[in-house]
């Protein structure tokens, strides 16, 4: 993938496929480590299955034998001084974490997080997303449950709402990247 935000989009889509109603996405940056965590309350996996998903010859999908998303992120993390781990419980949910050494020469760029979050909301407007991005001490959160409470039965995929969310995210992104 060109940027980590695309991996985040891809891994969060696994949670959507797993039937989650709440997907928590956390990006935590410190000088020594960048960590991405995607946590869901979807169907979960058995321990045996978790052991196999990092093997690129596993997938439950029928159209193609190879699941790509997790092995790809794991490979990228390992190439940049980190790794990937999955904690999962059937019927409870899954937490997938990947971490990186931001100073590593093969550290991929984080890229356009805003676009990935909007793409997730547009694709699954009935699922809730809790997105947190922190850089050192500074952080912000977007919780679609709060948005939904205000908007009532209006779909979060409406262009006006997506536009507002996009502005909200970019304002908050710049406030944590370039504090005044």
């Amino acid at each position: 993938m060109k940027e980590l935000s695309l991996n985040i989009l891809d891994i969060a889509k696994n949670s959507v496929t797993a039937g989650a109603t709440l997907v928590e996405i956390t990006v935590t940056e410190t000088p020594a480590r960048l960590t991405i965590t995607v946590s869901d309350n979807g169907c979960g996996m058995t321990p045996e299955f978790v052991a196999r998903v990092t093997d690129p010859f596993t997938t439950t999908r029928t159209t193609r034998k190879v699941g790509l998303g997790i092995p790809l992120l794991q490979m990228e993390a390992q190439m940049a001084g980190g790794d990937l781990s999955i904690e999962s419980e059937v019927g409870k949910g899954t937490t997938t974490s990947a971490w990186f050494d931001p100073g590593h020469i093969d550290m991929p760029p984080l890229g356009d997080l805003n676009s990935s979050i909007l793409t997730l909301i547009q694709g699954s407007p009935d699922i809730d997303f809790l997105f947190t991005h922190s850089i050192g001490e500074r952080s912000y959160t977007l919780d679609t449950r709060e948005i939904r409470e205000i908007m009532g039965d209006i779909s979060l995929a409406e262009p006006e709402i997506l536009a507002w969310l996009g502005d909200y995210i970019s304002e908050n992104e710049s406030s944590i990247t370039n504090p005044t």
């Binding site: 205000i150 908007m151 009532g152 006006e160």
Partner: peptide, 14 residues
Amino acid sequence: MKSLEELKALREQM
């Protein structure tokens, strides 16, 4: 900074 208050106005409009 954008506030969730603005969303209420957006809702009425929509």
